[in-house]
């Protein structure tokens, strides 16, 4: 009995969490009148024509074009972030060096530093370098371990690996980097996957940075294209097309989350943040 009540409670909360998303999916198939007249998410009929139109968008380019742009940011950025964070975390977790405490404090400060403070001066920097309206300002910082949280999480995971692993690798003739990539990284694969997934999702979600850096519609990532479409479509006009575009825009994030879900959730719960 108690169990049943428990499940009912969980189901009710789950409904609140998921219903808006289900409604979004359903609304994309509905007519505009139906969207605003029925509570139930299931559409009366499945009209898939809207997705063909939504793919074309209300802008000069198709969703495919915006996805390509987004991936041109996400792929290098995620690769850079993973590589640099792994190297830096390895340095912090396994070696002693001058000013270590100072640099680690700087890392923590960076984690707590509001990004809004750095946005304006960095805009000026990129502008001086003539890099506005290119993807470099969006991708390059990742090469310098710009996400302190990633380094922090990895450090916790590295610390959980016994030092004997490093020593054994060294005796077998592995150098510093070989030890890292062939012995340690395979041990913390869930953490590395989590970081890659976070980097993917955050970049997919990022709005402020592209808004400031990218000017030409041709180079817009999906987030800016969505906003452009939502703005250029007046109230009560082709709402479903915008809704369908939003659904399409969510697909990569949902797919990545679904694929990585197991490793990802274990990666964040298993130690990183509580350690």
């Amino acid at each position: 009995m108690k169990k049943l009540l428990f499940y009912i409670l969980l189901a009710v909360i789950g409904m609140v969490m998921l219903y808006p998303l289900l409604w979004l999916l359903g609304a994309s198939f509905k007519s505009d009148e139906e969207i605003f007249s029925s509570l139930w998410f299931m559409p009366n009929e499945l009209d898939t024509e809207v997705y063909k139109n939504a793919w074309k968008t209300v802008t000069p380019y198709s969703m495919g074009h915006y996805f390509m742009n987004t991936f041109m940011i996400i792929i290098p950025k995620t690769a850079f972030a993973v590589l640099s964070s792994v190297l830096v975390a390895y340095g912090f977790a396994r070696f002693d060096f001058p000013l270590k405490k100072f640099f680690f404090s700087l890392l923590i400060c960076g984690m707590f530093m509001p990004s809004i403070v750095t946005v304006m001066p960095l805009y000026k920097l990129w502008n001086t370098l003539g890099l506005i309206d290119t993807y470099i300002p969006l991708t390059l910082p990742a090469l310098f371990a710009s996400e302190g949280v990633f380094v922090f999480i990895l450090v916790q995971f590295f610390r959980n690996i016994p030092r004997e692993f490093d020593e054994a690798a060294r005796i077998d003739g592995c150098g510093t980097l070989k030890t890292l990539f062939f012995v340690l990284v395979p041990c913390i694969r869930p953490a590395v996957v989590s970081i890659a997934v976070f980097s993917f999702l955050w970049t997919m979600n990022d709005f402020l940075n592209p808004l400031i850096i990218i000017n030409s519609v041709e180079k817009y990532p999906v987030s800016l294209a969505l906003r452009l479409s939502a703005d250029s479509t007046g109230q009560g006009y082709e709402q479903r097309k915008i809704i369908a575009m939003s659904v399409i825009g969510l697909i990569p994030s949902v797919a990545v989350f679904a694929i990585a879900q197991k490793k990802f959730v274990s990666g964040i719960t298993a130690g990183g943040l509580s350690g």
Partner: peptide, 11 residues
């Protein structure tokens, strides 16, 4: 996970 996505804010 999806919440910061612009699509969700539009929703």
């Amino acid at each position: 996970i999806l919440g910061a996505n612009l699509a969700v804010i539009i929703m």
